[in-house]
């Protein structure tokens, strides 16, 4: 890591040094952006179901862990802004959706964490919200694309499917509830992992010699 570490003394030829706040946002935003451009694009190409939930979980782990290291208000949002800009480097087609997803996830974490940055419960809440958002983002995008008719169509499909399968009324809501519960479990786990990662990284950064080996 010694060789070739970029300096932020003159980031864009302006001669103005970036503040520690923006430097940290740049580093973690770059990390998130790289993940979105590489792993996100790969999962998108594989057409895996709930790939967005996986990406959101990774983002939550990183954002929550980052807030364990630096308890500065607005840092998660700034990191999201940088990551969304890094996403513009993605060679894929339409990037508005992923960019919006990044910004919404960053905003949700930002809203949940400032009051209790070190709280596991707040981190779990942030994880759950992000997980739910990423799952329902697809529906939201379709609503934006096709208008409210798409919702009516999906509801009609659900009713018809229930009729064909002779399912009792309200069975669809139980399925929906199950999916939401699963998403909440994934979200809370990612929030908890974020807190753990943050605490462990903090200890390693502070302890002489400990960061060298993993």
């Amino acid at each position: 890591m010694e060789a070739g570490i970029p300096t932020l003394a003159e980031p864009s030829g302006s001669g103005r040094r970036l503040s520690a706040f923006w430097t940290r946002a740049a580093c973690f935003g770059a990390l998130w952006g790289v993940g979105e451009v590489t792993l996100g694009a790969f999962l998108h190409a594989l057409r895996l179901p709930f790939a967005g939930v996986l990406m959101a979980a990774l983002a939550v782990i990183m954002l929550v862990a980052q807030r364990q290291l630096y308890r500065r208000r607005g840092l998660s949002l700034a990191t999201g802004l940088v990551a969304a800009l890094v996403k513009t480097l993605s060679p894929g087609g339409v990037i508005l959706g992923p960019m919006a997803a990044i910004l919404v996830e960053a905003t949700l974490v930002e809203l949940c964490l400032p009051a209790w940055p070190g709280s596991v419960v707040a981190a779990m809440a942030a994880g759950s919200l992000c997980s739910l958002w990423s799952a329902f983002q697809q529906l939201f995008t379709q609503y934006l694309l096709y208008g409210r008719n798409i919702i009516e169509l999906y509801l009609a499909m659900l009713r018809r499917a229930s009729g064909w399968l002779n399912l009792p009324a309200g069975a669809g809501w139980w399925v929906l509830g199950g999916v939401i519960a699963l998403l909440v479990v994934v979200g809370t786990t990612s929030g908890w992992l974020g807190v753990r990662l943050g605490v462990v990284s903090r200890q390693r950064l502070q302890t002489p010699g400990a960061g060298e080996s993993w």
Binding site: I5, P11, S12, T23, C27, A30, G33, V82, L89
Partner: peptide, 17 residues
């Protein structure tokens, strides 16, 4: 302005990351 600079810095960081 800082966001623009941070983006430039993030782009410069990509090879290292």
């Amino acid at each position: 302005r800082s966001l623009g600079q941070a983006f430039a810095a993030a782009v410069d960081l990509l090879p290292e990351l």
